[in-house]
């Protein structure tokens, strides 16, 4: 009887695990099926490079790809130096108490709702940008990238810090014993040995930036064209999905959002696989 119960228990657990894993595939399957007409005959790849002009029957999402690329890459440019600096600070320069508090703050920041970043973006950052550049509405690539940079910094900092912390203490001791300063140890011993943590942090942060909806939706302006300057409005793949509310489920316009979904799914899957290849550091500590 005991053995029987054990078997049932194991089977039940397996079903849960399999069902959860199945969800991953199911999501992809649904996106494919609903966007099917767009994928037939390799049209998908044509769409990637075409402009969006529903009036003329063109449903390319080049503008959205450009928008996502511009905003997420720029946000990395904003977040990377700050994150690197903060993780330097946390690793070896901060006074103990301050470091502890800052680390907690950073952990807390990963949990701040993105809608709040967006809300403050609308009422604080956008007017500021508008006045500074006296150009357009202030809803633009720059505003979204700045806010998004703030959103992804904590993620990056935590991964960087984990990467630094994973460097063998023996090396640090050896460097210190040879008379290296804290900064020298950091630059010449810790940093070169923490590249995995750095890569993982960068990719995770990029994934979070690409996948975020609310900030771009609320403060990037959502115009469907390829942005040509920092002050141009832009629409990301995620906000495109959020904005389409086609009543007709059979329209091509409606189907195009599934193509956006597939693109996002594949980009993120690629990021995940890349991280697994690197042998992620502290993957599970990302949140708290």
């Amino acid at each position: 009887m005991m053995i029987n119960r054990d078997k049932t228990f194991k089977t039940a657990l397996f079903i849960c695990a399999a069902a959860s894993a199945l969800a991953t595939l199911l999501i992809f399957g649904f996106l494919l099926v609903f966007g099917l007409p767009l994928f037939k005959g390799g049209q998908f790849f044509l769409l990637l490079g075409r402009p969006w002009a529903p009036g003329q029957g063109m449903y390319g999402f080049l503008p959205m790809i450009a928008g996502t690329a511009a905003i997420s890459l720029l946000s990395l440019v904003v977040a990377f130096p700050i994150s690197l600096g903060v993780s330097f600070f946390l690793h070896s320069l901060a006074p103990a108490a301050l470091g502890k508090i800052l680390k907690r703050l950073v952990q807390f920041m990963t949990g701040v709702p993105t809608v709040i970043y967006g809300f403050i973006g609308v009422f604080l950052l956008v007017p500021l940008i508008r006045e500074m550049f006296e150009n357009g509405s202030g809803m633009c690539v720059l505003s979204a990238s700045l806010m998004l940079g703030l959103l992804i910094s904590p993620t990056m900092i935590l991964f960087f810090s984990d990467g630094f912390a994973a460097v063998d203490k023996k090396y640090i001791q050896a460097a210190r014993a040879l008379g290296a300063t804290r900064v020298q140890t950091l630059l010449f011993v810790v940093l070169p040995n923490a590249w995995r943590g750095l890569m993982t942090g960068l990719i995770m942060a990029l994934g979070r930036a690409m996948g975020d909806t609310l900030i771009a939706l609320m403060i990037a302006g959502n115009a469907v064209n390829v942005p040509s300057s920092l002050l141009d409005p832009a629409r990301t793949l995620t906000s495109h999905i959020a904005l389409v509310s086609a009543a007709d489920y059979h329209s091509m316009e409606f189907k195009s959002i599934f193509a956006c979904g597939v693109t996002l799914y594949l980009l993120n899957a690629a990021a995940v696989i890349a991280i697994r290849r690197f042998g992620a550091v502290g993957k599970d500590k990302a949140h708290v």
Binding site: A23, T24, L31, G211, V272
Partner: peptide, 17 residues
């Protein structure tokens, strides 16, 4: 791998699902 990919799927895509 499945769980890692699922964790990375943007929430708007989960919404679309």
């Amino acid at each position: 791998l499945c769980f890692d990919i699922l964790a990375g799927v943007p929430s708007i895509v989960v919404g679309l699902f």
